[in-house]
Nucleic acid binder design. Structure first.
Length: 425
RNA sequence: GGAGAGCUGUCCGAGUGGUCGAAGGAGCACGAUUGGAAAUCGUGUGUGCGGUCAACGCCGUACCGAGGGUUCAAAUCCCUCGCUCUCCGCCA
């Protein structure tokens, strides 16, 4: 959510900054009208309320002295009716205004490249060598199915498409990766570990920006105003919803493992095979609540924390700076980490690191105070995957496969795999 | 699932229709006192919105779990919902 005061004073400038996002902004023109209406209603109703409060005190006095107050009571009854009318109008215009505010995306940071599509994202660095294989190379789903460590078919029977069973050392590998990532972020990168609820309420989904606009992307529980989390970002960011933090709590850094659930509405037919696009996947998330002046430095730092996972796993990747058209609704700036995926012969997204500035904080009411009596200010929130675990497994299976069909265990994972150095049949 | 109790400011806690943004206490901040500290005394100590101001601020309004209702007037009465606690049942 954007600052209403900013919209009030610089509407044209905001529109200009948003124009490269490729979003429909026609409603923005209504802002000035509704905002003015709202303020007029407020002024009017508050004046009447002041009057009512005043006269009510007089009525109390009169009654105490056993005097007649019928005239004043009658007058106030009319005032009360009028207040009700105006409040109703006010409520209606505020609803429209809020709907509008919730539909406006975040303003891109000045360092974000202007672009029309994902083709305009800018590669800013590359790490590692793209591998050459001297044997017939297989996609990860074939590697895994032959080793009997992933079972897509039975998952289709038990649940449906885009679900999977991990088995044996496959399940162990997923668990090893989760532990490895969590340990790295908790012990080396200074994040506090968190295990959040997998189900959240509507207010939380609204706080981080999934709702109201993207409800079709989420799994909603029937008969409940509850949603399966699409990412641990939602519960962890909302941990401090409607709170005022002390400045010495910042930066607050949390790393959380959770399963993530996405309906994948609109991506029918894409990545139908393998682990790349599942309705349920595991993810280790990094979330930071920071002071506004630090958020861009912290974004670089957090992105580095995610990159460190790929480096330790020795998986080649590149970092993309997302352009205005590919920022998503909530981010002011975003880096994607893409791992080389041999079966696709291209890089595939494995992490997304974003600075939301105060966009989420304003929606979720997360503030901090610099001094004991200072005015509360909105924090900045940043987060990133560190990493998407399923896609990491896919990358490992493809990069570490050997000619005989076995898969070597990356060195850093060996202790997490009970000492096993290779996955064989 | 059944029965009951509760939800008030940073915290504890009083308040069952009028002068209550809310007693009292604790905490915290500042000042006095002190060589320094403790103790003591004094002052202050929420947020949103609207208005006003160069600014400190000031004025108005709203907020006592959330939302609705009754009333001239609601922390206080009524309804719905949420959460917490206790007992019973069930259960990993």
């Amino acid at each position: 959510m954007l600052d209403m005061k900013l919209l009030r004073s610089n509407l044209e400038e905001v529109k200009q900054k948003l124009q490269h996002r490729g979003e429909d902004l026609n409603d923005l023109d209504k802002f000035a009208e509704w905002d003015e209406k709202r303020r007029n209603y407020i002024t009017e109703t508050e004046q009447l309320k002041a009057k009512r409060n005043e006269v009510s005190k007089e009525i109390a006095m009169l009654k105490k002295e056993k005097q007649d107050a019928d005239d004043k009571i009658k007058e106030m009854r009319e005032v009360g009716d009028r207040i009700k009318e105006i409040d109703q109008e006010l409520r209606e215009v505020e609803e429209k205004l809020q709907e509008l505010l919730f539909s406006i995306p975040n303003i891109p940071h000045e360092s974000v490249p202007i672009g029309e599509s994902e083709d305009d994202n800018v590669e800013i660095r590359k790490w590692g060598e793209v591998p050459q294989f001297d044997f017939e190379h297989k996609p990860h789903w074939d590697v895994a199915t032959e080793l009997d460590i992933l079972d897509f078919e039975r998952a289709g029977k038990v649940t449906g498409s885009r679900f999977v069973f991990y088995k044996g050392l496959g399940a162990r590998l997923e668990r090893a990766l989760i532990n490895f990532m969590m340990d790295l972020h908790a012990d080396e990168h200074g994040y506090e570990e968190m295990l959040p609820p997998y189900i959240v309420n509507r207010a939380s989904m609204t706080g981080t920006g999934q709702l109201p606009k993207f409800e079709e992307d989420a799994f909603k529980l029937e008969d409940w105003e509850y949603f399966l989390v699409p990412t641990a970002e939602v519960p962890v960011t909302n941990y401090y919803r409607e709170e005022i933090l002390n400045v010495d709590q910042l930066p607050a850094k949390f790393t959380a493992y959770s399963s993530s659930f996405r309906s994948e509405a609109g991506s029918a037919g894409r990545d139908t095979r393998g682990l790349i696009r599942q309705h349920q996947f595991n993810k280790v998330e990094l979330v930071q609540f920071v002071k506004p002046e630090e958020s861009y430095d912290k974004l670089e730092e957090l992105t580095g924390h995610a990159e460190k996972v790929l480096q330790l796993l020795e998986l080649p990747y590149r970092v993309l700076k997302m352009c205005t058209a590919d920022l998503g609704f909530t981010a002011a700036k975003k880096y994607d980490l893409e791992v080389w995926m041999p079966s696709n012969d291209t890089y595939r997204e494995i992490s997304s690191c974003s600075n939301f500035e105060d966009f989420q904080a304003r929606r979720a009411g997360i503030r901090f105070r610099r001094e004991a009596k200072g005015k509360p200010e909105y924090v900045h929130t940043i987060n990133g995957s560190g990493l998407a675990v399923g896609r990491t497994v896919a990358a490992i299976l493809e990069h570490y496969q050997q000619a005989d069909g076995s898969v070597k265990v990356p060195e850093v994972l060996v202790p997490y795999m009970g000492g096993k150095t290779v996955i064989t049949k």
